[in-house]
Design a protein around this nucleic acid. Structure first.
Length: 301
DNA sequence: CTGCTAGTAAATAGTTCGAT
DNA sequence: ATCGAACTATTTACTAGCAG
């Protein structure tokens, strides 16, 4: 019903990373975003076998009244709604009171607290759409290299070594989806909101960013190209100028949503494309030309 | 495999057109 | 008047096909 996509925030960091020197803080935050996404994808794969009669709702952002909640993973069954908080933490951890600590003493986000905060908000959202299904909040640690030392028995936590059994058990629990369930899923998707007030984007200006086309294989810049085929001098990967330019236009749109797309703009942004003709041709094929002459620009088809 | 040729598409250059 | 897109013609680089 809904696909899990990289967040806009993550995509911005990804395309900024090779083009600008990120501060250590930004790098750290970026790495966290990437790990989070890896973990969520990994858990999606675990859930795959139970989805025949259950619905996976990834990346659900709600804003009922003034509180914003982001829920990584919801799983709708006929009996209940699982609220998962997925973590890709690695290494040894301990619980001290309400805090989840790494062995070096630094704080990691405690998913149990996040669940405690999110559950009542989700309850309100469910009530709003007239759903009385019980919520089952669970924290999931999906990284096999994760260990938690002193957790008491009975916490709503799934550890890496328990994942397989959890999925097997879930699969044995009968679930029959009716029309009301798919309707509910649609209603929930409909009530999600797009923007996340917690995004922390680094500040960047066009002039300071390195221009050019990045190889999708290894993330480094192409040195140049000839005859409409780009060959990466680092990893050997190759692709057509058409798809490379198109991807680089998407990056530009992501980083500068308010700047108009013109042939000159994209020509400068892609840098290694020699002629504006090539850029124009691609824009002409994939986008829609607005206005004529001096004030012309391209928009989505 | 080499050398030739024709065909194709990109790059280049020069010019026109339209909006500001 | 000026700038950027659009148009046109030409050069350049590569490819496929073919004979020797």
């Amino acid at each position: 019903m809904k696909e899990r996509l990289e967040s806009e925030e993550l995509r911005v960091y990804k395309s900024l990373d090779p083009r600008k020197k990120l501060t250590p803080k930004e790098k750290y935050y970026f790495a966290g975003l990437e790990k989070g996404f890896i973990g969520e994808k990994l858990f999606d794969q675990w859930l795959e076998p139970v989805l025949e009669n259950r619905i996976l709702l990834p990346d659900m952002q709600f804003m009922p009244s003034t509180t914003f909640v982001q829920i990584d993973t919801l799983l709708l069954t006929s009996k209940q709604l699982y609220l998962f908080e997925v973590k890709y933490y690695e290494g040894d951890h301990v619980i001290e009171g309400d805090n989840l600590l790494r062995m070096d003493g630094t704080d990691a986000k405690n998913p149990l607290l996040q669940l405690k905060r999110n559950e009542p908000v989700l309850r309100r959202i469910l009530d709003n759409v007239g759903c009385s299904l019980p919520i089952q909040p669970i924290a999931v640690f999906v990284n096999p290299r994760f260990h938690l030392y002193n957790a008491p028995v009975g916490l709503p936590i799934i550890y890496p070594a328990q994942l397989e059994r959890f999925i097997a058990k879930l699969n044995q629990t009968p679930s029959f989806l009716k029309r009301t369930h798919t309707d509910l899923a649609e209603k929930l998707i409909f009530s999600t909101v797009a923007d996340n007030p917690y995004v922390r984007l680094p500040d960047y200006r066009y002039s300071e960013l390195r221009k050019g086309i990045v190889c999708p294989g290894c993330g480094r810049f192409y040195n140049g190209y000839s005859r409409a085929v780009l060959v990466c001098s680092f990893c050997g990967g190759n692709e057509t100028a058409h798809s490379a330019v198109l991807r680089t236009i998407e990056e530009f749109k992501l980083l500068f949503p308010d700047v108009r797309i013109t042939v000159s703009q994209i020509h400068d942004w892609c840098k290694i494309v020699k002629g504006k003709k090539t850029v124009r041709k691609i824009l002409e094929e994939e986008y829609l030309l607005k206005n004529q002459g001096r004030s012309s620009f391209y928009i989505e088809k």
